[in-house]
Nucleic acid binder design. Structure first.
Lengths: 207, 207
DNA sequence: ATTATAGGGAACGAAGTCTTCCGTTCTGCA
DNA sequence: TGCAGAACGGAAGACTTCGTTCCCTATAAT
């Protein structure tokens, strides 16, 4: 398979990736920014999605499915309960679905399927949290919602490029896990620390 | 002093409070939203500030000055180094200057004075951080910029009303301080935990 | 050669925003 | 009591931005 069909298939993926990147950085971004980032025209978008809202729903749905997948994988883990939970947290941070899903909440009408997936995601999160607390390796004075909010905090970090963002998020996730784990333990933090330059650079070009 | 002059003076404060509340919740909010929240007309705003940008600069400047004030107060503390640092962190969270200052960065031209204040704020933050590390009560593998980013994460929490937001922020700040402090210690978390309802409610009305 | 399909991007209409402007109210003072 | 002008409310103007449509071209399949 090659030629026109191949380019169309490639564009399918290109557009989705671009949309995810653009809307993650700025949930209110115009649709033209997605087209530009993907290197295609606007009609390439409208050929695939009838409206902006449809594209956002697709993106949000994909994010939820990824979240569910990561959580199910962690639940299937048989070994050390803490390691399973830690892997879950790292997986969510890597998947980076919080940035999109949360920021877009309320900007469009949630579909039927989206609601169902959200429900399932919530159930899974509750399950892995319960299991980890019962194993006695996680601070019991935190709810599932607390954990979710902590993950959102980490997702709010946006400094430098994609790679640096991930690095810093894992750094602070490790720090946070030190506060979560039972019995108390303290590990070395991954990645180079943040610098003053990284902070102040945001004052010159738009966020 | 009363009558028209009094109302004008009252409006001065009313407008600033409204602007802080509105732009904290949504940095891109229209100026009309500020007027409505303050219960005044648009001309009341333009009588005081020549443009939207001027208002934002004023807001940002006030935030920086408050930040500086809080930090200087913590530096003047004579007692336990950890308590001084903890008080500093709590003060910054209460002042809630990060939400505004950071989100607005890059949306307007920083003035001369603003740059100077930002410089001074940075120096003070470095100083209290250095002092606390040297006292041996703060994890040494974190930079001043790391601490700043951690505070930004906490400022990103926005769930429910003003009161609840503050409560949750202090809850997670306490958790975070458990991970920061030397020697390792663990305290009870303040405030009621987050609930699933608080999270899911964001799906129905705008963020 | 012809038709069908994908795509590029200008054009359009609607919505939103900052700013200005004008008429009105009310105070302080002569 | 009368008046100058500060303070104000809010509609109108001028402009920008954004989602969507439309028209045309390029290419692949027949």
């Amino acid at each position: 398979m090659s030629g026109r069909k191949a380019q169309a298939a490639r564009n399918d993926e290109l557009i989705l990736q671009a949309a995810r990147a653009v809307f993650t950085a700025d949930p209110g971004a115009p649709i033209a920014a997605v087209a530009e980032k993907a290197g295609v025209g606007i009609s390439a978008l409208y050929r695939r999605y009838p409206s902006k809202e449809a594209l956002l729903q697709k993106l949000c749905g994909d994010g939820l499915k990824l979240y569910i997948e990561v959580t199910e994988r962690a639940l299937a883990e048989e070994g050390d309960p803490w390691e399973a939970f830690a892997g879950y947290l790292r997986g969510i941070v890597d998947a980076d679905t919080n940035s999109l899903t949360i920021k877009l909440a309320g900007t469009f009408q949630p579909t039927e399927e989206l609601g169902r997936d959200a429900m399932r995601a919530g159930a899974l999160a509750t399950e892995i949290h319960r299991r980890t607390v019962e194993a006695g390796v996680l601070r019991p004075d935190l709810t599932t919602a607390d954990i979710a909010l902590l993950l959102e905090q980490i997702a709010s970090i946006r400094v430098g490029d994609e790679r640096r963002i991930s690095e810093l998020r894992h750094r602070y996730l490790t720090l946070m896990m030190d506060a979560l784990r039972l019995p108390p333990a303290r590990r070395e933090l991954p990645g180079p620390a943040a610098t003053d330059e990284e902070l102040s650079s945001r004052w010159w070009t738009g966020s």
